[in-house]
């Protein structure tokens, strides 16, 4: 009897341990599986977003959007994608957990660049044709007529790429046709600075430590480096022909720039402030993002309807994945749904 009791006790304890262990393994597994990175590629000619599983480099879903999707912004707090549709003048909202569109906000403008505030409570949409930035409350974007409720900030000419500062206090806007980067104070939505850069700034990215902002000058064939603590230019680096977009690695030691006119990616050593490698890629490379999990760079090719994969260790193209017609992926396009 005593022994049996003892035995039962042991079984119960063992069950508890087993249950705990299994739960722990499941949590570990699920976080490992679900938090894997995916690339979300806007296909301007197919009116879709290709979802690429970056463990396999395979398209695992194709999500219909509005007409001519270009820009992308990822909200990790709500697992949402925002996609700008230039021709249908709208923003598609996509649930990253189901890979389904959950809404399409009709706008009064043709949107291209878009980005989120640090907490993702606000969505900034650049109005390329009327020189202003629209500010939407993301909580209300699924409401009827959500596209008519916004605040706006007057900007320089043809605002394109946008980046939020590391602390979230400032929004940097590449004003393409006025050759400057505008700085907006996010709290009061006032323009607090305008920084002259090279000719036709377009794509931008923050350095790994959040201090340096890299601005691609399309017609200057260069990248301007802005120190965001002082909002001044600290370097201008020559890259390839007709560059478009830029991304950086997590420690900020490298910046990668797509050269649409040379079908290549320039690798910049940010300390030396010069190009240390030029990698041939598919035709007309546009959007570029860094996959920190595998240290790979992903590049959207507009001409070849594909996404190229570059190994950051060897600076070699190692793969190319077919996506949809006219891949653009303008914005930070790698996300980790969880």
């Amino acid at each position: 009897m005593g022994r049996k009791h003892q035995g039962l006790f042991q079984v119960t304890e063992w069950n508890k341990v087993l249950k705990f262990t299994v739960t722990a393994i499941l949590i570990l597994l699920s976080s490992n599986v679900v938090a894997e990175p995916f690339a979300y590629i806007t296909n301007q000619g197919a009116d879709t977003v290709s979802v690429v599983d970056l463990r396999l480099d395979q398209v695992v879903a194709t999500i219909p959007t509005g007409k001519a999707p270009v820009g992308i912004a990822i909200d990790h707090s709500q697992n949402r994608l925002y996609v700008s549709n230039v021709e249908s003048r709208s923003v598609s909202i996509i649930d990253m957990m189901t890979n389904q569109a959950i809404g399409e906000v009709k706008l009064e403008i043709a949107p291209v660049g878009l980005t989120l505030s640090k907490t993702a409570s606000q969505l900034f949409v650049a109005d390329w044709f009327h020189d202003r930035i629209f500010v939407f409350d993301t909580d209300k974007l699924l409401d009827v007529d959500a596209g008519k409720t916004y605040q706006e900030v007057a900007m320089g000419k043809a605002p394109a790429g946008m980046v939020i500062s590391r602390e979230g206090a400032s929004l940097y806007v590449a004003n393409r046709d006025s050759d400057e980067v505008g700085v907006i104070d996010v709290r009061n939505l006032k323009v607090v600075n305008k920084i002259a850069v090279g000719k036709h700034p377009f794509g931008m990215a923050l350095g790994g430590d959040g201090r340096n902002l890299y601005v691609v000058n399309v017609e200057g064939n260069s990248v301007s480096v802005i120190d965001t603590r002082r909002d001044v230019i600290i370097a201008t680096i020559k890259v390839g022909e007709h560059p478009y977009c830029v991304t950086t690695n997590p420690d900020g030691s490298r910046a990668y720039v797509t050269n649409t006119g040379a079908d290549s990616v320039s690798v910049i050593d940010t300390k030396l402030q010069k190009v240390i490698a030029t990698i041939p890629v598919s035709g007309f490379p546009e959007g570029i993002s860094y996959n920190a999990k595998q240290n790979r760079i992903y590049v959207a090719s507009w001409m070849d309807d594909a996404i190229d994969v570059i190994d950051a260790k060897t600076n070699q193209k190692i793969n190319s994945v077919a996506t949809g017609s006219k891949s653009r992926a303008f914005g930070e396009f790698i996300g980790n749904p969880h």
Binding site: Q44, G45, A68, V70, V86, E87, A110, V112, W128, A158, R176, D177, H200, V218, E219, W302, M303, S325, K326
Partner: peptide
């Protein structure tokens, strides 16, 4: 003075 590209290029 080369005109800057529009947002919806054709292919």
């Amino acid at each position: 003075n080369v005109i800057a590209c529009g947002p919806s290029p054709q292919k």
